[in-house]
Design a protein around this nucleic acid. Structure first.
Lengths: 205, 205, 205, 205
DNA sequence: TATGAATGAGCGTTCATTCAT
DNA sequence: AATGAATGAACGCTCATTCAT
């Protein structure tokens, strides 16, 4: 049955997730992934053609989940702002919150000009873009509805993602601390005091 | 002459910088660093005790420059906001702008539970914190002077650094594009439209 | 089959034996051991965790054989003197006779303060002591039975081992010569002429 | 002045002696020898063409001293037996008693078929032979004078050297213990009890 | 399909030796 | 003569990948 295949593949992916977030990509040994997945080393190669393929599979899997979450939140009948807020907390409480996931999703976790890297870029970047597009879509919606200022949606999306990242990192730094709202709030309101030159950059009307 | 030592060390550091930003830490071969620095492999080990030491030396060097820049900007007789703006563009036009520097400074570039990682953490994190502190200091100043809202300085600093990072990454994505102001502006003003719930999170008065 | 494991391990051990007796420990390259054993370099590391472990395995193996021989001879219903004689010739015709074995068993073959050396000492010395104890046991028996003088058993054992060593070395020096009995005989009778001060050192009655 | 040359050469030799007996030949770094001798690394190469040459020089130096001692003792107007006894204790109280010297003089300390080893053999063996010859000479004298039995002088010499070696090793094993006479005595008298088959091997008349 | 023993290219590091000063 | 910075060949060990079972 096909289900068996998907099941074992998932087991390997989960094991890989654990090891990669613990040790980072290059310190991850296929050996250990296999052991933790409860399969033999050779078996891993029946499901993934090589080590980079495991990484790509991992990122795909993670982004799939994140995108599903995103789609679900986007469909809710709430204001764009609430959507972004929901997204933020949903992500933060899901898989994405494991220490090391952000690193995993950062292109920087792996190498750069490498031949291997090219494959990463080809597979992963489009997915990252998809997420950015989703967020940008919400922003655009917010602008149209007058809830947001007329900002560049893609830049705002990137800022949003970065803010999320910053949040996670600070959480990782001081574990146990309850999720602070301040970062999210900063994203919405900026740091300038009322009347103190908002619009000053000439971007606003 | 003693200058000779520092000179050669710098040459190695520069070579290492090039290779690491190109390929990432683990794909950096000491061999190649040596070749690019125009010295023999063994020579590298006269200046750095091992490979991690090269990386640490690299980060130290980079952060030293960034901190120097920061100190210089902080001393200028301009408003906190202008300081942050200046910092943003000064960094962006300096060493920090090489594609890969942010990655290099990200803890994620290297591994995690590793013994080696411990050394990284011990040497690099304090320096990162120093930069964050510097930014947080400016934010605090801005708050005291009434230019900024009463936000948590450290969170704002992290947000600022993340915004910078986002900016660089988007710049890396679409090279050639002139530095966009949008991200910076978003940092200052947030995305909410006037009167639309700024303070909504209850953080404000 | 489990036998396969032991078989291959033995093949590596035999190859290591050949190389180490030929070149000495530090000039033994794991590469060459592997080649001679007919396996790949990496395979050696499946059977021995590192190079010192190969050496220790080698000594263990050799001493095991020697101790087995010793036990067998000790069990024979012959006089202590005959036991020592038998031991001498049995060893001399067995594995122990390869040029270089004595060297291999000499602590001196390897280094001294080294961390590695500590492992050697921990593993090998006890075994050497075991052999010395076995010989000392025979000597004690001989003393009790009145066949030997009242000498210190451990000193005699050390002397015996040294004599054996001397024999092997002289044999190595002039290969092809049939085993000379003279060294063995010297061990039993000493060099003093009859009546010429045997006991003179005051040790005898 | 030429004296300066010999002086510095000696300093290097002494440093080498210390390091080699401490760490063994292969763990001896030319660097450390130079440092301990108080000269620069390059200087060592002005006095010795390469590392093996240092070792050979070391052995030459040591054997020279031992041979001088030997000659001196041989010239004394005492019985052959006394000569051997004196030699034993003179050596034991001189340079030869450093832990590790015996190892140093053992061919086994270094490698075997190696090209380097050939040089060792060529230089050192003759010297070892010289010492053996000296001892054999004393033995022969003893036989002629009726003090010793009619044994093979070279075999006896080898036995003598081995006994000395055994003594030193046991001394090294249990440091602090006063030199035991037992080994020496065993050499002279053997272990057989009176009337119990001395001559039994048919070597005697 | 699954296994895990075997492989061997590849890398970090050491250290004897050289040579410009 | 003396120095010590520079060299680079050499080696121990790792680990992604393969393949006979």
């Amino acid at each position: 049955m096909k289900a068996k295949y998907a099941e074992k593949r998932l087991a390997i992916l989960k094991a890989a997730f654990a090891v990669v977030t613990e040790r980072g990509y290059s310190d991850t040994k296929v050996d250990e992934v296999a052991r933790r997945a409860g399969v033999a080393k050779g078996t891993v190669y029946l499901y993934f053609k090589d080590k980079p393929a495991i990484y790509i599979g991992l990122v795909d899997w993670l982004l799939e989940q994140a995108l599903a979450t995103t789609a679900e939140v986007m469909a809710r009948p709430i204001s764009p702002r609430r959507k972004l807020e929901e997204l933020f907390s949903t992500w933060a409480s899901g898989v994405m919150s494991s220490p090391g996931v952000m690193a995993l999703l950062s292109m920087e976790n792996v190498n750069q000009t490498n031949t291997v890297m090219k494959r990463f870029k080809k597979h992963v970047l489009p997915h990252i873009m998809e997420m950015q597009d989703a967020v940008a879509g919400i922003v655009k919606q917010g602008i149209e509805q007058g809830e947001f200022r007329k900002v560049e949606p893609r830049a705002a999306a990137m800022m949003y993602l970065s803010a999320f990242r910053a949040e996670l990192m600070s959480a990782a730094r001081s574990p146990g601390a309850r999720p602070r709202e301040s970062v999210k709030e900063l994203f919405f309101c900026g740091i300038l005091a009322e009347g103190r030159g908002r619009r000053a950059n000439g971007k606003g009307k």
